[in-house]
């Protein structure tokens, strides 16, 4: 099948994200911190992205929480940008931390 037909991102916006953390053991190498991410991504997708082999390449997935300006991200990036009056032209800094509450999606693994 055509690859583009599988691409669920078409028509979606993108935003430049910078992933930072204060935990040295899960820190990304400098060249991998900057990434264009679909704006429909929320905590689940962002967590999936960080665990992927391109990023942290974790053995077992670590559930992450994300903070923007000290506040937990509970919506999609798009909704966050709109609520803050920002556009996808502005790079977003996301601080990631290990999630303290076992997330629901872990059950599906």
């Amino acid at each position: 099948m055509d690859v583009t037909m599988n691409d669920v991102n078409s028509g979606q916006g993108r935003v430049q994200v910078r992933f930072v953390t204060s935990s040295p053991d899960i820190e990304l190498p400098e060249g991998k911190r900057q990434l264009l991410v679909p704006t429909d991504a929320g905590r689940y997708k962002l967590s999936q992205l960080l665990n992927s082999d391109y990023m942290l390449d974790t053995q077992a997935p670590i559930p992450f929480d994300f903070l923007t300006n000290g506040t937990f991200l509970r919506t999609t990036l798009d909704e966050y940008l709109v609520s803050q009056g920002l556009s996808s032209e502005t790079a977003v800094e996301l601080q990631y931390v290990r999630s303290l509450i076992p997330p629901l999606f872990e059950a599906s693994f």
């Binding site: 060249g31 900057q34 991410v37 679909p38 997708k45 992205l49 391109y54």
Partner: peptide, 9 residues
């Protein structure tokens, strides 16, 4: 160097 993430089903 810019990379782009895609979620492919």
């Amino acid at each position: 160097d810019l990379k782009e993430a895609k979620f492919v089903k």
